[in-house]
Simulated scan of single mutants.
Amino acid sequence: MQDKNFDKLSQKFAKNIYGTPKGEIRAAVLWRDLAPQIAALSDKPLRILDAGGGFGFLSQKLAAMGHEVVLCDISEQMLAQAKQQIEASEVQLNITLVHSPIQALSSAQHGQFDIILCHAVAEWLIDAKTTLQGLLTLLKPQGLFSLMFYNKEAMRFHSLVSGNFDYVMRDMKVKKKVGLTPTHPLYIEDVRQWFNQWQLTMICQSGVRVINDYLKHHLPPNFDTQQLIEMELLYSQREPYLSLGRYVHFLAKNP
C-alpha cells in the first residue's frame, strides 16, 4: 500500500474543493484561525512549509503577503497547476515547488520553518502519526503547526443521518474506494494525544464544515451561502459542533 497521489484527480480535486461553498468554508475557518497568529509572528517575512499543499491555495495567499513559502506535493499535476497560477500572479510570489513525498523532506535540505501547514493530508497517509512527527523536525522552536484532518466520527455521523447503516456496520469500509473519500480518517482524541506526546501547546481547535454537510435538501427560499459561512465561523469552535466538523483544524505551538 502507498499514500494517495492526486495526479489523476488534480482537476476534479481543484474544482470540488475550492470552487464550492465547501472550499469557501474551509478557507474562511483556516484563515480566521491562522491570521492573528501569523500577524503576531510577522514583523519580518516568515519561512512557511505547505506540506502536501496541492496547487497551493494558502501558499499563494501567504506568499502574496511577502512570506517565503516551500510548497511540497507528491502530485506532479498539482504542482504544474501551482506553477501556472504562480506565473500568472499579478504580484511576485516567493514560492519554491518541491515534487516529493512529505516523508522525504529534511531540515538538512530545506532548513527549518516558522510555520508548517499540513491540511487534508493526514487522512490519506498509511502512517499519519510517524509522518507528522517527522514534519515537526522541520519546525523551529516556538514555530506554529497547523494540521487539518478528516474526522472519522463526523464521517460516521454523516453516514448515519444519510441512512447508510450497512456502510456504518462495515466500519465505513467499501470494496471500491471513491476518488475523494479519504482512506484513513482520524479520531480527534487520537490526534489530541499525539499533540500531547509531542509537547505541542494547542492554540486553537475548530471544526470545518460543522453545518454544511448536514444541511437538508430542501432549504428555505431565502437561504444565503454568505450567512452559512458566518454561521460556520460562529459555531466551529463550540462543542458539540466542533466534534462534528467534517474536518478538524488544530493550531499548535512548538515548545
Score class of each variant (00 low, 15 high):
119 H>T: 09
158 H>E: 06
82 A>S: 05
219 L>F: 07
182 P>C: 03
123 E>K: 11
109 Q>C: 02
33 D>C: 13
85 Q>W: 04
156 R>N: 01
173 K>W: 10
126 I>G: 01
102 I>Q: 04
48 I>T: 00
199 Q>T: 08
162 S>P: 11
38 I>L: 14
237 Q>N: 09
151 N>L: 08
73 D>G: 12
23 G>F: 00
218 H>G: 09
116 I>W: 11
194 W>S: 00
249 H>G: 00
31 W>Y: 07
10 S>V: 05
106 S>T: 15
37 Q>R: 10
224 D>W: 10
31 W>F: 04
234 L>T: 00
201 T>R: 15
62 L>D: 03
99 H>Y: 07
10 S>N: 01
222 N>V: 07
59 S>Y: 05
75 S>Y: 13
91 V>M: 07
240 P>K: 04
187 Y>M: 09
43 D>M: 05
241 Y>G: 07
156 R>T: 14
48 I>A: 01
238 R>F: 14
220 P>L: 06
209 R>G: 05
181 T>A: 14
2 Q>D: 08
130 T>P: 02
193 Q>D: 09
82 A>Q: 09
28 A>Y: 04
128 A>G: 01
48 I>N: 03
22 K>T: 08
24 E>W: 11
196 N>F: 12
200 L>A: 01
147 L>Y: 12
185 P>R: 15
173 K>A: 10
58 L>A: 01
3 D>W: 13
225 T>D: 15
169 M>W: 14
168 V>R: 10
64 A>Y: 00
44 K>G: 05
94 N>E: 08
80 A>M: 10
43 D>S: 12
92 Q>E: 04
99 H>M: 02
27 A>C: 06
144 L>F: 04
118 C>I: 15
89 S>N: 12
69 V>Q: 02
188 I>T: 13
13 F>W: 11
127 D>W: 10
124 W>P: 01
96 T>I: 03
133 Q>E: 04
126 I>A: 05
167 Y>I: 04
207 G>P: 02
85 Q>R: 14
195 F>C: 00
125 L>R: 03
245 G>N: 10
201 T>I: 01
42 S>Q: 02
195 F>W: 15
238 R>C: 03
107 S>T: 01
161 V>N: 02
206 S>G: 01
20 T>M: 07
211 I>T: 02
78 M>L: 14
52 G>C: 05
117 L>W: 07
87 E>P: 03
167 Y>R: 14
214 Y>W: 13
198 W>N: 02
97 L>V: 13
201 T>H: 08
60 Q>L: 07
132 L>I: 15
227 Q>P: 00
249 H>F: 00
74 I>T: 09
160 L>D: 00
68 E>G: 01
61 K>Q: 13
1 M>Q: 06
144 L>Y: 06
204 C>P: 07
